[in-house]
Design a protein around this nucleic acid. Structure first.
Lengths: 220, 220
DNA sequence: ATATAATTTTAGACAAACCTAAAAAATTGT
DNA sequence: ACAATTTTTTAGGTTTGTCTAAAATTATAT
């Protein structure tokens, strides 16, 4: 597979990730920053390799073979993101561009050993799930801490309230996007929640809990 | 710089590393596994970019600019090799192919952080020196332990005697290619040498010392 | 010294991945 | 329903890096 083919496959995967229908030529062109005519050329090529289902004027979708290729690229991308953040101290918003390059490195042994080195992570620093070798991944759900049961564990992936005051609070309490938290206890009378962080456990008010999104890994 | 341009630059660097003269078109073609005519095309292109000095039929040599490009690629290659061996537990003879891909990843921040993560290594797992950001590197010398003064430090990069018995001895004493040793003491009357290893320090006979090559980093 | 051999360059072609401009098909609005 | 608009494809061209075959240059050997 060429680098360009891999990028198209990945693009088609992401465009059909949620609506699951066939993807329009123009949509691919826009995402890939190329012209629709170039997309048509490539889609024909991918179709000949049985990586996509394609009929003229009818849009395109990934074949099962293509879907597995996409997931293997996404697996590599997300493992590299974990590496960059956990081992090289990149911040979670810097890693995407570099991972876009690293995802194309071809070596099964490399990815296996990287996975082991990182401790077999289940999600990347943005909270997106990492498929296993066979393309299987647990579809994670993004929920507010206030909506989750005690015992839930997940990666902090977003905020509702992005005011300076709130972000300052998070900083002060060493809460950052990409951190993994576990919900230890919930006080009935005020809705405050105790969560475990890397630096111990802290209690957050209900207001805070309704402003922090976790990407759930395991729900106990 | 394209991937192909980088590969040519690196190839020319390695071909002129020792004889320092200009490099023949055929030699490049052989190393790059392409045809001489392709080399001529590329060399013209590199010449227009002032990366090489080139006159028709007279061979080619790197310009100062080209030399720095080569050294930056070599820096990346060797840092990745250290990563693969030290962090991912690849054996020293498996890493070259993967590093050939990784060396083309473009991100200064990545290389800086990787360098720091690895503890600013001076040599790769084969004992070859790693240039710094500015292309400066200490030209290391390969010598037998028996020829080195007390205080020398280096990476074990080869053996004189490759008999099964000798390799078995090395294995038993936890000496492997790629390990860093320091010469702590030399007994005058029998020429035996005490060296520090990762698992402590051991004493080796003069015979052993005349069979192990170290690539010297710092000579005290 | 010069014929022969080896090396290097040129000329022209090809595949991959892109482009523009124009034609074909599908969609939309009334 | 069908004209106008949008989307998609086709046709033909460009660039990068490769190739083959032939021509030009340099090296070698007697």
């Amino acid at each position: 597979m060429t680098l360009s083919e891999e990028d198209y496959i990945k693009s088609i995967y992401h465009l059909s990730e949620f609506n699951s229908k066939s993807v329009a030529t123009n949509a691919i062109a826009e995402q890939m920053k190329t012209k629709p005519s170039s997309v048509t050329d490539m889609v024909k090529k991918l179709s000949e390799k049985s990586l996509v289902n394609y009929k003229k004027y009818q849009g395109v979708s990934l074949s099962e073979k293509g879907r597995l290729v996409a997931l293997s690229i996404i697996r590599k991308h997300r493992l590299w993101e974990v590496f960059l953040v956990d081992k090289l101290n990149f911040s979670w918003d810097e890693v995407h561009v570099v991972a876009e390059q690293l995802e194309h490195i071809k070596s099964d042994a490399l990815i296996d050993k990287l996975d082991a080195h990182l401790g077999y992570p289940k999600v990347d620093p943005h909270g997106d799930p990492i498929p296993n070798k066979d393309g299987v991944f647990t579809k994670s759900v993004k929920k507010l801490i206030s909506e989750l049961p005690v015992g839930s564990q997940g990666v902090c992936v977003g905020v509702n309230d992005s005011s300076a005051a709130f972000l300052k609070f998070l900083d002060k309490n060493k809460i950052a996007l990409g951190d993994t938290f576990k919900i230890l206890e919930r006080e009935e009378f005020d809705g405050s929640v105790t969560i475990s962080t890397r630096s111990g456990s802290i209690n957050i008010s209900k207001q805070i809990a309704t402003n922090l999104f976790l990407e759930i890994v395991d729900e106990e």
